[in-house]
């Protein structure tokens, strides 16, 4: 099972980016092999609109079944749900800290978006 973290950098010690839709990268972590790959999300960052939706497409293509991020807008949430991807919100400072929380079962699956969307 793979998990996508919204990340500002290229390794697990990078800060967790609080915005799903405008995150520069996704760190896709494979829980079975403990390996990860970094997926570039710059196209969404530069999107005129629908960045959250485009990010959801990026995550879906990466094969991840869950997303861990700071905040997720309504369009992104709908798109992720549509792709069958679960969403977990956290204010953990780094990807590694968020991963620990996920592994210890301390993150609850989000039932809806937690921020209003629209270009923020």
């Amino acid at each position: 099972m793979k998990i996508a973290f919204s990340s500002s950098g290229d390794d697990v010690h990078s800060p967790l980016d609080p915005r799903f839709g405008r995150a520069p990268k996704f760190l896709v972590y494979d829980l079975e092999t403990d390996r990860y790959e970094v997926v570039d999300n710059r196209r969404s960052l530069d999107a005129a609109q629908g960045a959250g939706i485009q990010s959801a497409e990026t995550v879906a293509r990466s094969g991840a079944g869950s997303v861990v991020t700071g905040h997720c807008g309504p369009n992104a949430f709908r798109a992720l749900s549509g792709a069958g991807i679960k969403v977990y919100h956290t204010d953990a400072p780094t990807v590694a800290a968020a991963l620990d929380l996920y592994r210890s079962g301390k993150l609850l699956e989000a039932r809806s978006e937690d921020v209003r969307g629209h270009w923020a």
């Binding site: 921020v115 209003r116 969307g117 629209h118 270009w119 923020a120």
Partner: peptide
Amino acid sequence: GCPVIASLTG
């Protein structure tokens, strides 16, 4: 409109 929405969300 759209620029105002973009300026105030969050």
